Simulated assay, not measured.
Amino acid sequence: MSAASSPSPAVSRSPAVKARRLRTRLPWWALALPVVSFIALLALVASASEASAASPPQGLTWLLEALARIVPIGV
């Protein structure tokens, strides 16, 4: 039972070869998705500044009442 005399591939590589191999190109969508998301959020914020003042949100009142019925406080 003799051991293999050749060094393993991971040991024989120099740091420069490893660094070169680690540099990979990003796919096109890895840059496009954050850009599109940023533009969409910026458009939402810009359009919200033009909105007129409205009555208090009715959905929030309904949600708080529903939570008060579900979670009994002070019982």
Results as ranks from 00 to 15, higher is better:
residue 2 S to N: 09
residue 3 A to Q: 12
residue 4 A to T: 03
residue 4 A to V: 07
residue 5 S to H: 13
residue 5 S to L: 10
residue 6 S to T: 12
residue 7 P to K: 01
residue 8 S to A: 09
residue 9 P to N: 11
residue 12 S to H: 11
residue 13 R to W: 00
residue 14 S to M: 15
residue 14 S to Y: 12
residue 14 S to V: 10
residue 15 P to W: 02
residue 15 P to Y: 10
residue 15 P to R: 01
residue 15 P to V: 03
residue 15 P to F: 02
residue 17 V to F: 11
residue 18 K to T: 08
residue 18 K to A: 11
residue 18 K to S: 03
residue 21 R to Q: 03
residue 21 R to S: 03
residue 24 T to L: 11
residue 24 T to V: 08
residue 25 R to S: 11
residue 27 P to C: 08
residue 27 P to K: 09
residue 28 W to A: 12
residue 31 L to G: 12
residue 32 A to V: 05
residue 34 P to A: 13
residue 35 V to S: 04
residue 35 V to N: 00
residue 35 V to W: 01
residue 37 S to N: 05
residue 38 F to C: 12
residue 40 A to K: 07
residue 40 A to M: 09
residue 41 L to E: 08
residue 42 L to D: 13
residue 43 A to R: 07
residue 44 L to K: 11
residue 46 A to K: 00
residue 47 S to Y: 00
residue 51 A to C: 13
residue 53 A to Y: 06
residue 54 A to T: 00
residue 54 A to I: 01
residue 54 A to V: 03
residue 55 S to V: 13
residue 59 G to E: 09
residue 59 G to H: 05
residue 60 L to I: 08
residue 60 L to N: 07
residue 60 L to C: 15
residue 63 L to F: 15
residue 64 L to T: 14
residue 64 L to E: 14
residue 65 E to F: 08
residue 65 E to K: 10
residue 66 A to P: 04
residue 67 L to W: 10
residue 68 A to V: 04
residue 70 I to P: 03
residue 70 I to N: 09
residue 71 V to E: 11
residue 75 V to D: 13
